[in-house]
Computed example of a mutant assay.
Amino acid sequence: MKRWLILEDGTYFEGEGFGANINVYGEIVFTTSMTGYQETITDQSFNGQIITFTYPMVGNYGVNRDDYESIAPTCKGVVVKEHARRASNWRNQLTLNEFLTRKNIPGIAGIDTRALTRKIRQHGTMKASIVDAGDTFDHAFDQLKAAVLPTNQVAQVSTSKPYPSPGTGKNIVVIDYGLKHSILRELSRRNCNLTILPYNTTAQEILDLAPDGVMLTNGPGDPKSLPEAITMIQGIQGKVPIFGICLGHQLFALANGADTYKMKFGHRGLN
């Protein structure tokens, strides 16, 4: 099925749809990773975003049970040059097309993703939509221009209730701003006794658990939209060790008088 990728500046690309057959809009971003597409798509840091993969072939080793970073991914769409119709790997369970269809995420293939990336680098991150090519372009473009991107991304992806991941070692509180499973995996590998808490947990609720450390996780969106998190960090620092990743580290910086600002575009990859 022919589909369009429409950008906020009026540029559009025509490609072939795969995955879920739905129209979406979101913030378009790119990643230069050569592998790890399953981890990227299921990373809640990409909540509400359309992910462009610059690597020319995506999906060649399929999707497996071990590499999820979340159970229910919340990215808006996937843009690729080419997706593998067949996957070849001993761990493979689903093709990328099957996976995106099950998760209700649309994909578009046949896009010059490197030209698209140059445009994002030149003009900065912008809104984009993936729509059926049979739609009226002017109508689809007007809808995109009128679309308002959400600012409550962390509330969408954080756990709503506390839950444990028992261990026999250090007692670690994990504040979930959109955590990746690999964070819990690595802490569990070190025998940590984990308590995962919602993003809006108070300082006193954390201190009542007598933690040996507090992990502030990764997550989507602007850290300045989480004043309650900044207040919480100020209430626990100096009383318990704190370590942060991504959004968590930015929140820690804000809580200590530093400033943050959105870059013209994010350069995302794997490390």
Rank of each mutant, 00 (worst) to 15 (best):
N171P: 05
S160N: 13
A147M: 08
T136V: 13
G167H: 10
H139C: 04
K161F: 03
D132L: 09
H139Q: 12
Y163S: 04
S160F: 03
S165T: 10
M126F: 00
A155N: 10
V154A: 05
N152I: 00
P150T: 05
H139D: 12
D132A: 14
T151F: 00
P166N: 04
T168C: 09
T125N: 11
L144V: 07
H123I: 08
G134L: 00
T151S: 13
T136P: 01
Y163K: 05
F137T: 07
Q153C: 08
F137S: 06
P150S: 08
H123S: 14
K170N: 12
H123W: 08
T159H: 09
V154N: 08
A133T: 01
P166K: 13
P150A: 09
D142R: 13
I172H: 10
T136R: 12
N171A: 14
V173M: 06
K161D: 04
G169A: 09
V173W: 06
F137N: 06
D138H: 11
G167M: 06
I130T: 09
Y163A: 01
Y163P: 04
F137V: 07
V131G: 02
G124I: 07
G134R: 11
A133H: 02
V148R: 14
H139K: 14
D142P: 00
G167L: 04
F137R: 07
T136A: 13
A147Q: 10
L149A: 13
S160M: 09
S160G: 14
N152H: 12
S165H: 11
G124S: 05
G124M: 04
V148N: 10
T159L: 08
K161Q: 13
S158Y: 02
K145L: 14
L144T: 06
Q143L: 11
H139S: 09
T125A: 10
D135M: 12
S160H: 12
P164R: 14
H139I: 15
A128W: 01
P162G: 06
V131F: 03
A146L: 04
D132Y: 08
V131H: 00
L144M: 03
A133N: 02
D132F: 11
K145N: 10
T168Y: 11
A147R: 10
A155W: 00
A140T: 05
F141N: 02
Q156H: 09
P164T: 11
K127Y: 01
K170R: 15
P162C: 05
P150E: 03
V157T: 06
S158R: 04
F141S: 03
A133K: 05
K127T: 01
D138W: 06
L149P: 02
P162D: 03
N171T: 13
V131E: 03
V148I: 14
D132Q: 11
Q156V: 12
Q156F: 03
K145C: 09
A147N: 09
V173C: 10
D135K: 15
P150M: 02
S158G: 06
A133W: 02
G134C: 02
S160V: 09
G167T: 08
T136Q: 11
K145F: 02
P162Q: 05
D135G: 13
I172N: 09
P150K: 10
G169K: 11
T151K: 14
D135F: 08
H123V: 12
V148L: 08
V131Y: 00
Q156I: 09
A133R: 02
G167P: 10
P162R: 05
I130H: 07
